[in-house]
Amino acid sequence: MTAVRAVRAASRTGRTLLALWLVLPLVPLLLWAFADRWTFPAVLPQEWGTRGAEEALAAGAGGAFLTSTLLGAVVALLATPLGAMAGRALASRQVPAGTAVLAVLLSPLALPPFAVALGLDVLLLRLGVPAVGGVVVLLVVAALPYTTLTMRAAYAAHDRGFEDEARVLGATRWQTVRSVQLPLVAPALAGAAFLAFLVGWSDYIVTVLVGGGRLTTLPLLVASAASATGSDAQVAILSLTSILPPVALLLVVGSLGRRRR
């Protein structure tokens, strides 16, 4: 009886520690975001306010938010259909040398993004590719492993019988894709698009190296604020702004996936 109680107590302590591990780093972020004055050694801010937000807006947070959203959306818009098509082909096992093709498509996962960006930067300059275009292409390539893997798994679990049935019932190839295949893999598509959005939304190094100052995204603002001193409130509010949209998207995508099941 006591042994059971001891195990239960240990397990409760363990879980509390794990929850703390996940949450603790975010606590100062939340506190600093609304702290106007918080000097050492106070555990809580002495004055609450919106100074951080005002500083962030003055630093161009509004435009950066828009740029980041747009960058994430464009990357998702390009990488999701490409990944879906590749995933479909790979799941059908009809691609010649399928394993090698998959390895190539996943290679951006293994290669350090800074190495790829650094190698391509010179070339893009010589070819005269606009900086923004270069950033988008690089990030789409970085997102393709995620979308391809997600959609390959979805299509592997997808029953081709549904499409055969639709064809026999008179649906054309395109009607079958639109009215049967896409609705059935919609949750996976949403998940793939979310991952691709994250790649664009969170990127720092590619935007810095290839963007050449043309793109000011939220991560760039966070980095510049964090490397300056005395702007902790601004860092916190910028960080929170970078977290909330993807978390909200995650909740939406997650609820979509659950409803489908």
Partner: peptide, 21 residues
Amino acid sequence: RAVLLVLPALVPVVAVVGAAL
């Protein structure tokens, strides 16, 4: 058809990774 489907993803990856390296 499978090859046609995989190419739009494969070409940019090969181009970017290959060119960068």
